[in-house]
Amino acid sequence: MKTCSACFRLFSQDSGFCPVDGQRLIPVAEASPPRTPEDRRVGATLCGGRYQIWRIVADGGMGRVYQALDLRAGRSVALKILHPEVALDEVSVERFHREFQVSASLPHEHIVEVLGFERTEDESFALVMEYLEGEELRTVLKRDKVLPPERLVRMVSQLALGLAEAHERKVVHRDLKPDNIFLVGTRDGDRVKILDFGSVRDNSEGAKKLTVVGTTIGSPFYMSPEQAQGLLALDHRADVWSVAAIVFECVTGRVPFHASTGPMILVAIMGSNPLPPSEAGKAYGAPASLDPVMERAFMKSPEARLESVGLLADGVGRAYGLAGSHRDWAY
């Protein structure tokens, strides 16, 4: 492995220069990770001396993500470590552990690979994952507002393939949003990775339930009506709605339902209909052929909604004049 002496990112042995800072990379054996008083984990080696922390990648409500060197495997990994106060909550820790179990049971090229679940020396818990280089869809939308059709179709087609694996096993993600869709840049285009299975609903026989009936789980802007109501009868079609909300935002530059508070957003989702994409996204050239596809994806009743994310992806591609199915457009 090599590292950049400016930003301390880790790279494979065959890399030459840091794409962020332009610095010539040096072998990790000739460098040391930085130390910072703001976070004692940076520069430390955790989990029985296996993971050497090199830098902070991101912060979230549950925890902080680091890039680390797996000293045993000789590879770069991401460590998501719970915040101290979250690590004291038994239900949060159980959800975190279930994220590991569910993700590890869903090996798929479009689902982030989870490698381990560890207890840290500072009394927290770590989820060990493959390290991804790229950006979240949220970052792209903040910068570019919308996605061009070819990029949108490729993304939703890959989402359909990854979610089909989960849905076949009766696992509902329940928190699909631009923040949980990671776009890995490759020479051939985006490679989608679905993140964060910590809010899943496992409908398989005998699965343990962690959500009390009437509790809403998910992000309000992307939540289906049945999620908004906290209904017990919730299946993969809730994810269809969420992906439709993401597609809507990708073509219009705005979410389909908007209000000033979370509860008001949920009321809007349950009681009103979004504008047709061709109207909401007129400034970006959203086609009228997309309107009936989104109308079916946003049906309030799951029984009337598009049956799968694959059918939604098919509809999006055909709205842009493509022949075939999402399996043809994913790569």
Rank of each mutant, 00 (worst) to 15 (best):
V93N: 11
H97E: 15
H97D: 13
E99G: 00
Q101Y: 03
V102I: 15
A104N: 10
S105G: 13
S105W: 07
L106T: 05
L106A: 03
P107L: 06
E109M: 13
E113W: 07
E113S: 14
G116H: 06
G116W: 07
F117R: 04
R119C: 13
R119F: 14
D122I: 12
F125D: 09
A126T: 09
M129Q: 10
M129K: 02
E130I: 02
Y131I: 02
L132Q: 02
L132R: 01
E135N: 04
E135V: 03
R138C: 07
T139R: 04
T139E: 11
T139Q: 07
V140N: 04
L141I: 00
K142G: 13
R143A: 11
K145F: 09
V146I: 15
L147N: 05
P148G: 05
E150M: 08
R151Y: 03
R151F: 02
V153N: 12
R154I: 07
M155T: 14
V156C: 12
V156I: 15
S157W: 06
Q158L: 10
L159H: 02
A160F: 06
A160T: 10
G162W: 00
G162Q: 03
L163G: 06
A166N: 03
K170L: 15
V171A: 01
R174M: 11
R174E: 06
D175R: 01
L176A: 07
N180W: 00
I181W: 00
F182R: 00
L183M: 12
G185I: 05
T186E: 04
R187P: 02
D188W: 09
G189F: 07
V192E: 09
V192Q: 08
